[in-house]
């Protein structure tokens, strides 16, 4: 059973099915599939009248590793660095095969791109600051997120906040990144190692922001450092909304920030500056007004979200 990486998840888990754990005997009623990845499949389930997310896989070792991460994030928490872990158990399917599953808090939210499309570009600044805040906390507790990508992020409502949902790639600082996705990986772009350090996440962070505006992503033409840097810089420059932040984003791409706090500071400065300019040049051309206005509102939103 362990000899193949991807023995198909051909066990049929369907809505309405009950899954009962071998060790702790809790029962979960499957509601619907939420998504699947390299390690396993995540389902929405119901237990004791409330919803939870259940991840199940035949890769016991990888699942155990993920559980370990969730547990240690839970210890440093008090805040929401990852979904909280509710249960870990094994499930024997009707024909006797064993699967490992864990149950975690169900985070209900909206995908980032549609949210920005509906609610406006002023949210970009807010989300950047929120995300950098979380990354700073994570790094301070000794971890690097690793597989930071748009698909792993959700916007939850009231208060509006960006949250990450899959900790599968989370790696102890100093070790080799456990799981990554090419587009977001600085190794793929020839711009650094895959050693877990804060700057690894900051690179991926910039690619997350870019992927909001490039739904079809883009590729490296050849893996040499200068060409990939040029490619990414051009993509940053082509997005008007990102113009105020472009210096910060480019610095993160080339690994100039050692901590998220440094990068957050830089982005905050951009926002402050924008506010100041806003007061000084209220009679300028309308399009300038607009972009400055966006930054102003973004700053405002972020401070509100800090208070909440």
């Amino acid at each position: 059973m362990m000899n193949k990486i991807s023995r198909k998840h051909d066990f049929l888990i369907k809505p309405g099915m009950k899954i009962t754990g071998k060790w702790h005997n809790h029962t979960y009623v499957i509601k619907k599939k939420l998504g699947s990845g390299a390690i396993g499949t995540v389902y929405l389930c119901e237990t004791k009248g409330s919803y939870a997310a259940l991840k199940i896989s035949d890769k016991s070792a990888s699942m155990t590793t993920e559980v370990n991460v969730l547990k240690s994030l839970g210890k440093v928490q008090g805040n929401r660095l990852g979904p909280s872990l509710l249960d870990v158990d094994d499930w024997i399917n009707p024909i006797g095969q064993k699967y490992t599953f864990y149950v975690m808090e169900y985070i209900k939210g909206e995908a980032v791109r549609p949210f920005i499309q509906q609610n406006g570009n002023e949210w970009i600044g807010v989300f950047m600051l929120q995300l950098l805040d979380d990354l700073e906390k994570l790094h301070k507790s000794g971890w690097v997120f690793g597989d930071l990508k748009l698909e792993n992020l959700l916007i939850t409502a009231s208060p509006t906040r960006i949250r990450w949902i899959d900790v599968g790639g989370t790696t102890l600082i100093g070790r080799a990144i456990k799981e990554y996705t090419e587009f977001y990986d600085r190794g793929y772009w020839g711009l650094g190692s895959r050693r877990a350090e804060p700057s690894y996440d900051l690179f991926a962070f910039v690619m997350v922001i870019l992927s909001i505006y490039y739904p079809h992503k883009f590729h490296r033409e050849n893996p040499s450092q200068t060409t990939t840097t040029t490619t990414i810089f051009k993509k940053i420059d082509a997005i008007k909304t990102l113009t105020p932040y472009s210096i910060c984003l480019k610095k993160a791409i080339t690994g100039k920030y050692e901590t998220s706090a440094q990068m957050k500071q830089a982005i905050q400065t951009v926002l402050y500056q924008a506010e100041k300019n806003h007061q000084e040049i209220t009679n300028q051309k309308p399009f300038l007004m607009e972009s400055v206005g966006i930054l102003f509102v973004a700053g405002g939103y972020y401070f509100i979200s800090l208070l909440l």
């Binding site: 060790w23 016991s60 070792a61 370990n68 547990k71 870990v88 080799a176």
Partner: peptide, 22 residues
């Protein structure tokens, strides 16, 4: 084997395996 242990114990052993792998 490791897979026959309760999930809690398995977690501790997996940490050792990961450590070795690193």
């Amino acid at each position: 084997t490791m897979d026959d242990l309760a999930p809690e114990k398995r977690g501790e052993i997996m940490e050792v395996v990961e450590d070795l792998g690193e």
